[in-house]
Amino acid sequence: MTRVKFELPADDLARATAFYREVFGWAAQKLPFEYVLVDTDGEPVDPQDADGGISPRTEFVQGPVLIIEVPSIDDVAPKVTAAGGTLLNAKERVGDYGFSQYVKDSEGTVLCLWESIADAT
């Protein structure tokens, strides 16, 4: 089973964070690198269970991205290419939280595969 989260790109993380707090009442937690975790229920953010994040706009993250949590990126990435998708970057470690890899599905939609450290082997 997979869990789906989201990532919103921003040119200014502080400005975007303030927007989502003020407009929707989301809770936010800045990480020690350029990323903000958010919980849409307004409760304090649990880094292991956040609903999504706000990230700097990058080559891959130009619009909203679905983050699909998987038990193993190494197992899922070959399935992406076998099903007609494309790997956009190599699997990367994200602090002490987990690993990510951006992919495109068969229709060109950018997705982010996520493997949490708790699930990593």
Rank of each mutant, 00 (worst) to 15 (best):
T2V: 11
R3G: 03
K5Q: 12
K5A: 13
F6E: 04
F6I: 12
P9S: 09
P9C: 06
P9M: 04
P9A: 08
L13S: 13
A14E: 15
A16L: 11
T17R: 13
F19M: 11
F19D: 10
Y20G: 11
Y20I: 07
R21S: 01
R21G: 02
E22P: 02
E22T: 15
V23D: 07
F24E: 10
F24A: 09
Q29D: 02
Q29C: 05
Q29G: 02
K30F: 14
P32I: 08
F33T: 06
E34H: 05
E34D: 15
V36I: 07
D39G: 07
D39Q: 10
D39V: 01
T40L: 12
T40D: 00
T40K: 11
G42W: 07
E43I: 02
E43N: 12
E43P: 01
P44V: 05
P44T: 03
P47R: 11
D49K: 12
A50L: 05
G53T: 10
I54S: 02
I54D: 03
R57D: 00
V61W: 11
Q62W: 00
G63M: 09
G63V: 07
G63C: 01
P64M: 14
V65C: 07
V65L: 02
V65I: 14
L66K: 01
L66G: 03
L66F: 10
L66D: 06
I67Q: 04
I67C: 02
I68Q: 09
I68M: 15
P71E: 12
S72G: 03
I73R: 04
I73L: 09
I73C: 05
I73T: 10
D74H: 14
D74L: 09
V76S: 01
V80A: 11
V80S: 05
T81Y: 01
T81S: 08
A82P: 01
A82V: 00
G85L: 06
G85C: 05
T86H: 11
L87A: 13
L88P: 05
N89R: 14
N89K: 04
A90C: 03
A90K: 13
A90L: 03
K91D: 01
E92H: 10
R93H: 05
V94P: 00
G95W: 12
G95L: 14
G95E: 10
Y97S: 03
G98C: 06
Q101Y: 03
Q101A: 04
V103L: 00
K104T: 13
D105G: 13
E107C: 14
E107Y: 15
G108C: 13
G108R: 08
T109E: 08
V110I: 14
C112D: 07
C112N: 15
L113H: 02
L113Q: 03
L113V: 03
W114G: 05
W114E: 02
S116W: 13
S116G: 08
S116E: 03
I117M: 14
I117K: 10
I117L: 13
I117H: 07
D119V: 06
T121H: 10
T121V: 05
